[in-house]
Design a protein around this nucleic acid. Structure first.
Lengths: 218, 218
DNA sequence: GTCTATACCGCGATAGAC
DNA sequence: GTCTATCGCGGTATAGAC
C-alpha cells in the first residue's frame, strides 16, 4: 500500500530515537490507521487483527488492550472516519457559496484528505456485511444531508432543475464514490496506469462531477 | 434474504416429491446461487463455505466435490455473473436504438434480472480484496465497453456533449450501481422502507439515470 | 504500556462409508 | 452423488511476566 501512515511512521521514528518508546495516544492512532485500511478492504467479518497489528508494528494483544474486541476496534474506526468526514465538510462555508461551487468544494475538500479513499470501502462493507448498523449508530447520513440541503437550495434558487434532492445527493456520491472502491477493476481501462495515483483519481472525479452537475442544472 | 433462489427451491421441491433426489446440474446451480449471495457480501476472503453449504441445503463436502476449493467456487461465481450480465446486455439491439433509449434499455434489462443486486457487491469486493484479478480474467470490462461505445456514438451523432466516453460510462454505472451495495446504509433516508424492495430500488435508479443522462445531453 | 505464551474454536479441506 | 467424521491451520481473545 502506498497510502500514508502518519501515526505509524511517527511511532516508529520515535521508537528509533529512543526518546519516547511508549505513547498510548500515538499507538492508538497507529492502530486505527491500519485498521481503517484493513476494514476498508475486508469489512468487520473479513478483517484480520493479525494484519492490523503487523501493519501497525505492535502485537495483537495491544489491540485488545486498547479496544477490547475486534468489534470495538471496528466501531471506533467507523466513528472516527464518519466524524472526520463531517468535520472536513463543516469547514467549507457552503451557505455563503453558489450551490455548484459549494458541491465542488465539498467533494474536493474530502478528496484532498488522505482518509477519503478508505471511506467508500469502509461504508460499502459496512452496508453489505452489517446492514448499516454502525453507520446508523454514528450518524453516517449527515454527509448526505449536507449535500441534499445544498441541492435543495439550488432548486429554490432556480439554479437546479426540479429533482429529488435525496436522489441528486445519491447520484453525486455514487458517481464520485464508486471510483475508489472499484479502482482496481477499472485500472484496466487504461493499462499501465496506477490505480492509486491521485492524478488519475482526480481526473475521473472531475469528469464525473461535471456530468452529474450538468445533469442537475436548470 | 428475500432474494430469489430458483435452483435451490427447485432442488428442495424435487427432494420432497421424492422423484429426483440427486441431480448434479441442479446441485451445482444451487451452490453457485448461494455462493453468489455470500461472496457479494463478504468477498472471497470473508465468505464462509459453511454458510454457502447450509444455505444451499448440502454439506461442505459437496462444494469441494464440485469446485475443488473455495477459490475454485469463487472463480466460477465471478465467471458466471459476468457472462450472464454480458449475455443479457447482448440481447438488447443497442445499435438500432437511439442512444439514450439504448442506455436506458441496457440498465433496465440488467435490473430486471434477479442477479443484478449481487453484481455490484461481488465486483466491489473483487476490486478491494483481489485487486481485480478474477474480474480481469473473465473480461469484466466488456460491460463498460458496451456502455462507452453507446456514448461514443451519441457524441458522434451530436446527441451527447463532448465528454470522455469512458468517464461517462463510469458515471452511469457508478450513479446506478452504488445504490445496490449501499442500500442498507441508505435505507435510513426513508425510515420504514425495505431496502430490498424492487420498487424503492427502481425509483432511485430511474432518478439517477435521469440526472446522469441529462448531464450528457448536448 | 508492551510483550510472550497459550487457550480455544471456527473454518477449509480430506478420507472414506453408503 | 451425498453424507459423517476428522485433521490441522489460523484466528480471536486472554493470562501474566517485564
Amino acid at each position: 500500500m502506498a497510502s500514508p501512515r502518519k501515526a505509524q511512521d511517527l511511532r516508529k521514528a520515535l521508537s528509533q530515537t529512543g526518546k519516547v518508546q511508549r505513547d498510548s495516544a500515538i499507538t492508538k492512532q497507529s492502530i486505527l490507521d491500519a485498521a481503517e485500511r484493513e476494514f476498508a478492504s475486508y469489512g468487520l467479518a473479513g478483517a484480520r487483527t493479525e494484519v492490523i497489528a503487523a501493519d501497525t508494528g505492535v502485537t495483537k494483544a495491544m489491540i485488545h488492550h486498547y479496544f477490547g474486541t475486534k468489534e470495538g476496534l471496528y466501531d471506533a474506526v467507523v466513528e472516527r472516519i464518519i466524524n472526520r468526514m463531517v468535520e472536513i465538510v463543516s469547514t467549507v462555508p457552503v451557505e455563503q457559496m453558489p450551490v455548484e461551487e459549494a458541491i465542488r468544494s465539498v467533494i474536493h475538500k474530502l478528496m484532498d484528505e488522505q482518509i477519503y479513499p478508505h471511506y467508500p470501502g469502509v461504508m460499502v462493507n459496512e452496508s453489505l456485511q452489517n446492514k448499516g448498523k454502525y453507520f446508523k449508530q454514528h450518524g453516517g447520513l449527515r454527509l448526505h444531508w449536507t449535500l441534499s440541503s445544498i441541492v435543495k437550495r439550488g432548486i429554490a434558487e432556480g439554479v437546479f432543475r426540479q429533482v429529488s434532492p435525496e436522489a441528486a445527493a445519491l447520484s453525486i456520491l455514487g458517481a464520485v464514490g464508486h471510483l475508489f472502491p472499484m479502482r482496481y477493476n477499472l485500472a484496466q481501462i487504461f493499462p499501465g496506469t496506477n490505480p492509486d495515483s491521485k492524478e488519475l483519481q482526480r481526473s475521473y472525479l472531475e469528469q464525473a462531477l461535471d456530468i452529474v452537475l450538468a445533469g442537475l442544472k436548470a
